[in-house]
Structures are given as C-alpha cells and as structure tokens.
Amino acid sequence: MKQRRLLCILILAFSPSVSFGGLRHFTFLYEAPTSARGSVELENWVRWQRITEPDRSDEVDFRHELEYGVTDKFQVSVYLADWFYEKNRGGAGFTYSDSALELIYNLTNPVDDPIGISIYAEIKAGDRLIELESKLIAQKNLGPLILAYNATLEAVWEGNDLAEREGEFSQAFGASYEISPRISAGMELLHEFVFPEWRDEGKIRNLFVGPNVSYRRGNWFVTVTALAQATDTDDEPDLQVRTIFGIGL
C-alpha cells in the first residue's frame, strides 16, 4: 500500500513528461548517457541465480525502479523496492530487502569525446542493510558497437545491528552490437574483489561472463544477460540470469 502511494506521488510529480528515459544494452553495467530532461521510465529487474556450493539454493531478486531526467546530464532514480524469493534446505519465501536512491551525472559524450564518462552514486537502506556505492562509468560508441566499462566501489553494513561489514571493488566490461534497429547482442564480464570485514584475508575473487541480448520497440525495451561463474567461489552463483524490462511513462 505504502509502495503504491509512493509510486502514485512520483508519477504525478513527473506527469508533464511522457517520453522515454532510454534503454539499457546491458544488465550488469551502466551506460554513460543519461535520460533526457523531463523523461520518466519505469524499470523492473528480475534476477534468477543458482548456487550449488556448499549447498544448493535458488534465489530470484526483483527491483522496481523509477528513473527521471532532471537535466540532460543529470538523472535521479528511486528503487521503490528490492525484494527476493529464496528457496533452500531451510524453506522458501519472499523477503523485502531495501529501497534506494541513485544519482548519475554525465561528463562527456561517448560519440564525440574520446570516452564518454559518467559518475554514479547510490545509497541503499533496508531493515537489515545499508549500502553505499559509487561508480565510474565509461563508454565508447564505435558505429553499431557499444563498449562499456564500470569500476564500482561498495561498502555494505548488514545483519542484526548492521554488525556485518563488507567492501567490494568490481570491474565490469561489456560489448553490445546493434544487429538491427530493434535488436542488439553482445557479452558482459564481471570481475569482483570481495573484502569481508573490509579485509582481504580470504582473497575472494569472482569472475562471471556471458552473453546479453536487447530488444526494443515503441516506448519499451527488454534486455537479458546470462552470466556463468568462471571462478570456483563457494556461496557465489554458478549461473545467474538478469532481465530488465523498461517502459517510458
């Protein structure tokens, strides 16, 4: 009920605009261009992941996000809700995780400048979670090919009394080729350095890689990426599939 009310307020606040915020060619990377001033878009994320070691479990994460172009170079997004369904030996069920605020500022253009760059900041808060995330987004458009790179720093406090701490540095690289005006396909690579308790004693490194495909039509798009783990880390997904469905309001 609370979420529905918030959604209505946001839609009414942004109602003068009916345009599209821009689509995603990747699901594990962000792109440098920001939404046009006044444009609003609703994005729904779904990610399924399977972990097999040490125990098998399946999880499906959901996100509902509203994206708004404040200026042509500055974009604000609100994650109305992040929630998930988990099934393991202990049982199964839905859990609300958090909501978040995301800001992206575009500095240079990926077509005209040598590299298109944007900076990103996000704050996420839930019952048992606080997360700060910053990101450098780089992109180059070469004709029908889009190359993107993200460097991300994350600090997480979670669990009871937010006593568990974790840091993460990740790099992601993506390529997307426009096969036709409606379809793009490519690949994404995600390399994570995880620091439990902000220490690097475990030397946890994760590498995920896999293909992506994006389809757009009218004022909506859908993009899907499937990533397989190329390392052998316990408690990390062996396979994960993320889908983003976006629609201009």
Binding site: L142, A175, Y177, G186, M187, L207, V209, A228, A230
Partner: peptide
C-alpha cells in the same frame, strides 16, 4: 568443472574480439 568455466571465458573473449572487428567503419 574449472576447465569448463575456462572454456566459457575463452569463448566469450573470442566473441568479443570478433564483435569489435566488424562494422565499425562509421563513427561520429
């Protein structure tokens, strides 16, 4: 298992190189 994952990784790199080598003649 590890060799299978390495094969996936190698396959993805080959695809990327292949993608970046075609159709990039018209830019700005």
């Amino acid at each position: 298992m590890k060799s299978k994952r390495l094969a996936i990784f190698a396959g993805a790199i080959i695809c990327l190189v292949d993608l970046s080598s075609c159709g990039t003649t018209s830019f700005a």
